[in-house]
Design a binder for these strands. Structure first.
Lengths: 190, 190
DNA sequence: CGAAAATTTGACATGACTCAACTGGAGTGG
DNA sequence: CCACTCCAGTTGAGTCATGTCAAATTTTCG
């Protein structure tokens, strides 16, 4: 828990009472490799903060193809935002790719927490703002760069992820086939 | 101004005093067709709410190609989020495609407003949350649908936009060339 | 060691792009 | 009201980036 409070203090200042209010509204939980934090069709009941481990958020389209929307690593947030906001069935699956420890805030607790500690509202605004800005950046990259460029940029920006997840998932994240990624990697060697 | 206060009340309840605090921190402004609300390289000083008119937000890549990230119409927000948050030079341009009336909140006023009316913090969290969820949806669509499917979906979802902006801009938004969009439209007729 | 999972390889197919030429308004000015 | 230009949209030929499918190879891990 303390890890999480420390992390929060990077964004907002909490008094002792506020910190303990936060603590009483969160839960720690451990998932095994392969387990799901959210499954498409279920309601996403928590915002999930990753303490350790790694996750992937993916969408299964009508043709049965998986599309990875994002990975989650230490100190990142995860969750199907739409599903959480509206408490409606999730479109996405979130699966742990390693044993993963998380901190979770339940929907009914978060609203409660926002009332008692308005600073938390601020905190989430800040977090989501930058997640939003990053998604926009991603859209641009998909449009203005080719697959090879996107791959190399990804390797630079997220070396920790490249090392820890299978290549075919990176291909999926980049929006290309595993075969084509393989080809790209081959070219780069020469 | 009142239009904007009414709009806010859809999301949060404001007392008279709060409403007047909001009013005193916003400004109305009119832009002509072709004018820029934000230009890449400048700092984005405002969050901009569109009362009437239409805008496009686009990115100019290293090869000189424009990529439309989003359009903005009545009751939508606009702004380069990264630039606004960090008060750093903007990557994006926001241009009016018609004469456009907006409400703007300046960076220094918004922080001030958040302090005095914490509900506004809540309001922005909600707005940005759904903007974020929409961008994620867009990424999935780009990956799981081809150009023709994306075009038809766009026509269904945003008929108001299709009617009001030139075709080559829609092609740019969809991530394809104007020539290819033209071809798609031809196929669909038969 | 053996089976399953991940990656690679190669032949072929295709969606989407490029470039250049052409068409058809919508001003604009004489 | 005509001639001219400008801009958006269309058409077509050729090309390229990326996908598909199937088989071979390598890696992982029980």
């Amino acid at each position: 828990m303390q890890v999480f409070i420390d992390y929060l203090q990077n964004y907002i200042e909490l008094t002792k009472e506020e910190a303990s209010l936060v603590s009483s509204n969160i839960k720690s939980r451990n998932y095994l490799k392969g387990q799901y934090i959210v499954q498409a069709g279920d309601v996403c009941r928590y915002q999930t903060f990753i303490v350790s481990g790694i996750t992937r958020t993916f969408y299964l389209d009508d043709n049965g193809n998986e599309h990875i929307i994002t990975f989650g690593i230490e100190n990142w947030w995860n969750g199907d935002m739409m599903s959480f906001i509206n408490q409606s069935p999730a479109d996405f699956n979130i699966q742990c790719l390693e044993n993963t420890q998380v901190i979770q805030i339940a929907y009914h607790n978060i609203e409660n927490l926002f009332l008692k500690v308005p600073k938390m509202e601020r905190f989430f605004r800040i977090i989501i703002q930058s997640a939003y800005a990053n998604t926009q950046k991603r859209i641009i990259r998909n449009y203005s760069m080719n697959a090879k460029e996107r791959y190399h940029l990804f390797c630079e920006e997220y070396p920790q992820i490249v090392q820890r997840v299978p290549q075919y998932m990176i291909a999926s994240y980049l929006g290309i086939t595993k075969e084509f990624l393989s080809q790209i990697r081959n070219q780069s060697k020469s």
